[in-house]
């Protein structure tokens, strides 16, 4: 069990937070790195990517996808989540102004609704958040904004509540989530681990009783394995952990992924996700009511 401490050290030492394919820092990897380091107890190192995010925050309060790309601005959600989490864990208001501006921008930003179509299974009139400006609301950005706004204390806002309804609406009839469509031309689509993990992570502690949530957890539990690719593994474990359903082997899977037993997590993005998934989820996500870390698992799940 040496890979996790080494990964935390490498993440703490990083000065750029990148996707695997890119040379420049990007907002999403930076936000996950800040969260992972904060959850791992390294507040000083967590502050570095958080400060970098503050540095690229735009006057509007939004945060673009990377150092060079101001648009689209969906990572505003994750920056807000990171800043709010760091402040809460540190018991200070270091990022308060960043959070306020980001929340204001986020609450004004709206995915495009569409008239209901007989060909489309999901409720196209619900308003959540989109990947890019002036496009339809999609599952994953809506999850990220709900997480961010809840962390920032806006969980009772109607926009956030509608976002939660959208997430439930986008779950597939037999559980799991596709990238966002559910039924097209009468056929249910195929679930995937990453959007499903993110969706159930977001729904943890939300008092939602829809049967598709349980089915989604079952889908995650029977599908994720040690062979799962790093990001999907991390999101699946985060979602399961938030509901107290983390499999016994999860810690070993994450350790192996960090160790490069199959393939090394060569980017800060994947390393951050795996480190975060290895931490007790209630350390950084207070809404999760039933939490287990990858290190303290529940065999009954």
């Amino acid at each position: 069990m040496l890979a996790l401490p080494a990964a935390i050290d490498r993440l703490a030492a990083a000065r750029r937070w990148r996707y695997r394919a890119s040379d420049e820092s990007a907002a999403e990897p930076a936000a996950w790195a800040a969260l992972a380091l904060a959850a791992a107890g390294d507040a000083a190192s967590a502050a570095r990517p958080a400060e970098w995010l503050a540095g690229i925050q735009q006057p509007s309060g939004a945060v673009g996808v990377s150092a060079s790309q101001d648009d689209p601005r969906w990572p505003t959600s994750l920056a807000m989540l990171a800043w709010a989490t760091l402040d809460r864990l540190a018991g200070n208001a270091r990022f308060a102004s960043c959070i306020g501006a980001a929340a204001q921008w986020s609450l004004a930003d709206r995915g495009r609704a569409a008239r209901q179509s007989e060909h489309i299974g999901h409720n196209t009139e619900l308003v959540g958040w989109s990947w890019a400006a002036d496009t339809h609301s999609w599952l994953e950005p809506t999850c990220m904004f709900v997480l961010g706004l809840r962390a920032a204390g806006f969980d009772r806002r109607p926009r956030v509540q509608e976002g939660v309804r959208l997430i439930v609406d986008r779950l597939l009839p037999d559980g799991g989530a596709n990238y966002g469509n559910t039924i097209v031309l009468g056929r249910p689509l195929v679930p995937h681990l990453q959007p499903t993990g993110l969706a159930v992570l977001t729904l943890a502690g939300q008092q939602q009783r829809d049967a598709r949530i349980e089915k989604s957890l079952n889908y995650l539990a029977r599908t994720v394995s040690g062979d799962t690719a790093a990001a999907s593994l991390a999101f699946a474990c985060l979602g399961l952990a938030a509901h107290g359903r983390l499999p016994l082997q999860a810690a070993a899977w994450i350790e192996a992924a960090l160790d490069g037993e199959r393939r090394p997590p060569t980017s800060e993005y994947e390393r951050a996700l795996l480190v975060l998934a290895a931490q007790p989820v209630d350390r950084w996500l207070p809404a999760a009511s039933h939490t287990h870390s990858a290190a303290t698992v529940n065999e009954d799940s």
Partner: peptide, 12 residues
């Protein structure tokens, strides 16, 4: 990273 998943900018 610019167009989303799906690439909804193009659809619109």
């Amino acid at each position: 990273i610019k167009y989303g998943w799906p690439k909804n900018v193009l659809h619109h």
